[in-house]
Amino acid sequence: MRSRIDRRKIVEALNGYLFISPWLIIFVIFSLISLGYAVYLSFTEYNLLRPPRWWGIEGYQRVLENELFLTKALPNTFKYVLIVVPIQTFLSLVLAFAMDQNLRFQRFFRTIFYLPSVTSSVVISLIFIWIFAPQGIFNQITGLTVNWLDDPRTAFYVIMGMNIFTTSGTLMLIFLAGLQDIPLAVYEAAEIDGANGLQKFFYITIPMLRPVIFFVVTVGVIGCFQVFDQIYVMTAGGPLDSTTTITYLIYKWAFRDTRIQMGQASALAVILTLIILAVTLLQRRVIEGSGSGAER
């Protein structure tokens, strides 16, 4: 009897692995093996034309001494994260509060706000190129003559605005799900105790949304550190490298430069991974720390 049960468990386990095997094969080949090979390439000199030559941490040293990385890509990336993440988090939270009310045409507005998130980022980038062209709609409405995407002072902010526009809808739905998961009885008890709307927001809504806030901020930080397609389509890192970020610099070193530096690009990719990991752990400690402080 016991052998039959054990055999049934083995068959069930094999069936389970058989069902997930297509995803598992893709994950192992295109994620695990690719990640391991990228880490290996980061310790080599490789230009795609000759076999990789081991040179240890030379690639990392060159990255950390590179002027374009230190003066443009690294500051631009952190600037992008520090501006976009707070604004898109706040905006999506406001939209979620609005969509959580009993409004007319509520489903219509939810669809409209979410629509940019399901549209191709390349398509939206092209639309923004037309909007902010010298003869584009924005200049015609405002009466300005600014060449927004060819000016180092404005190009990066246009890309930031587009990213906020396209991601707020998705984050709004996440916040909306978190808001609807808060029991109404908690708010009713607070009202009986005499709490006003502001007190309920800061002492009930925000604390109970803390896991959601952490998830939204984490997703936003990772996405902003990895921004590439919008920059590739709209400015190609220009003008004057004012929109060059770490991910675009990886692409530039690996594929675009006349002298391909795949090993150095892989080293930069590893460094970017470590930066994202460190920032994520830091923000987790900050959010959890603020939560424990509020509870005390």
Rank of each mutant, 00 (worst) to 15 (best):
F132V: 07
I276M: 14
E288S: 05
L198Q: 10
I87P: 06
L18K: 10
F19P: 04
I213V: 15
N66E: 09
W55H: 07
I10E: 07
L64Y: 02
T170V: 13
L14D: 00
E45Y: 07
I33K: 03
L249G: 00
T218E: 03
A236N: 06
F128A: 10
V39R: 01
V212P: 05
I174D: 01
L249W: 03
N76C: 14
T258I: 12
W130F: 13
A185T: 12
V122N: 06
P22Q: 03
L103Q: 06
L74M: 14
I271D: 09
T145S: 15
T235K: 02
T243P: 01
K79S: 15
D100T: 06
L14K: 08
L95W: 01
R296E: 10
G169L: 03
L95A: 01
M99K: 10
M262S: 14
D193I: 05
I127K: 04
V118I: 14
I182G: 05
L115D: 04
C224F: 00
F201E: 07
S168P: 00
P52Q: 04
E65M: 05
L103R: 02
V216C: 12
R50G: 02
Y114K: 14
F156K: 10
G178K: 08
I112H: 08
R7D: 11
T119G: 03
Y157L: 07
M1G: 04
E67T: 07
F109H: 08
Y187K: 05
L74K: 04
L115Q: 07
F27P: 08
F202T: 10
I29F: 15
G136K: 05
Q101G: 07
T258P: 02
I182M: 15
I26K: 14
G36F: 01
R4W: 04
Q61N: 09
I25V: 10
G293D: 14
P134W: 12
Y17H: 12
S266K: 09
R7G: 13
M1C: 00
N66S: 02
N76V: 12
K72A: 13
G291C: 02
D193K: 08
S92N: 13
E12W: 11
M160Q: 15
